[in-house]
Simulated assay, not measured.
Amino acid sequence: MKSLAKFFFTTGLALVAAVLLVVFWPVPLSESKLLVRVPPGASLRTAAQSLNEGGVGVPAWIISGVGRIAGLSTSIKAGSYEFDEGIALWALLRKLSSGDTSQADVLFVEGSTFREMRAKLNGQPELLHITRDMNDADIMSRLGMAGQSPEGWFFPDTYRFDKRSEDIAVLQRALAAMQKQLNTVWLSRDANLPLKSTYELLILASIVEKETGTASDRAQIAGVFINRLRKGMRLQTDPTVIYGLGERFDGNLRKADLQRDTPHNTYTRAGLPPTPICMPGLAALQAVAHPAKTDALYFVAKGDGSSQFSATLDAHNRAVNQYQRGKP
């Protein structure tokens, strides 16, 4: 009997030691810094398989078994997890249950075009680039906006994401953010604006975004464009011409460019251009929804970022001579 008891005691100690070794000894990793993504809705078993397939050198059944014993079966959270060499299985599982994901971010700046936005996404190494080989139309179709130009539809902000997320998911969030902001601003807009839809507000806000050099001028610039729309005057704004020129624009806007007709040239065509010309920020959206009450119909850059506003063409021409041509 004593021998049998000793056997069971020794065996029990060995089992406890083995369990402690498995739980607290560093797990082998295929890389010194390993990144593994656990998919949304993953069970403990699925998460264990993802870890094993992603480079954690412990069988999935052991990972899930230890997780069940630790009571973590229902607390595993989806996301991207980064593990350093030397991490123990226990710490690894606690990381998954606490949602200690590894994240990165991407910044979309006000006034950027969709082409510039795509370049920013493609240059983010922590994303999975499923849109890299798509054209703009394919992307908008994937986002549920088939047939719609992508320009202007994405809200400029910093977007944090789990590493190895798909880039289309970031675009989806930026689109939803713009739709939310645009609808909120539209519902609170001033009465009797010469704008028929949220899309027209978005278009004009993109022009205001590009024309504003000093934040204090933003509502005044919006007021000028609103006044011109009310009077049936052409907007005659250079950024729309530049956008219409596309890659033909070499940084120098010439008189011939102002006369070259494109769908976005507001010198040759009346009303708003057919699409936005960039992604406007919230301040530009609000400026168009609540433009300054002004009689100004013209403005010209003063060279310090601010603008000189005028109510008549004669006053505007004098301002142009003063600030653009250096004449008194």
Rank of each mutant, 00 (worst) to 15 (best):
S50D: 01
A70D: 15
E110F: 00
V109H: 02
R115A: 13
G71E: 10
G86T: 11
Q49W: 10
N135Y: 08
F108A: 02
S80Q: 05
N52E: 15
G79R: 03
I76T: 05
L127F: 04
D105P: 03
M140V: 02
L89E: 04
A119P: 06
L128Y: 10
L143G: 06
L107E: 00
I62V: 15
L107A: 05
L44G: 01
G54I: 06
L128F: 10
G57A: 15
V36P: 00
L93C: 07
D84A: 13
W61V: 11
S43I: 01
S112P: 03
A78T: 07
W61M: 06
L44K: 00
I76Y: 07
R142V: 07
E53N: 15
M140I: 01
V106A: 02
R45Q: 09
G144E: 06
I130G: 08
K120E: 13
A42K: 03
E85A: 14
L121K: 02
R45C: 10
M140P: 04
G86R: 12
R142L: 06
L128S: 14
E116K: 03
L92S: 03
L72R: 04
L89D: 03
I87R: 10
I87F: 08
K95F: 09
S73A: 14
S80N: 09
G67N: 09
S98L: 14
E85W: 05
R68H: 12
L89I: 06
S141L: 10
S73K: 13
E53S: 13
I76R: 05
Q103V: 14
V58C: 07
R132I: 14
L127I: 12
L92H: 03
H129K: 14
Q49S: 15
K120S: 11
D100I: 00
G79N: 04
G86V: 13
I139V: 15
M117T: 07
R94P: 03
I62R: 00
D100F: 02
M117Y: 10
G111W: 00
A47I: 06
E116S: 10
Q103R: 08
R142W: 11
S112N: 11
A119G: 08
A47R: 04
G86L: 10
N135L: 08
G79I: 06
I63V: 14
W90Q: 03
A70S: 14
S97L: 04
P125I: 07
R68E: 12
I76Q: 02
A119T: 11
N122F: 15
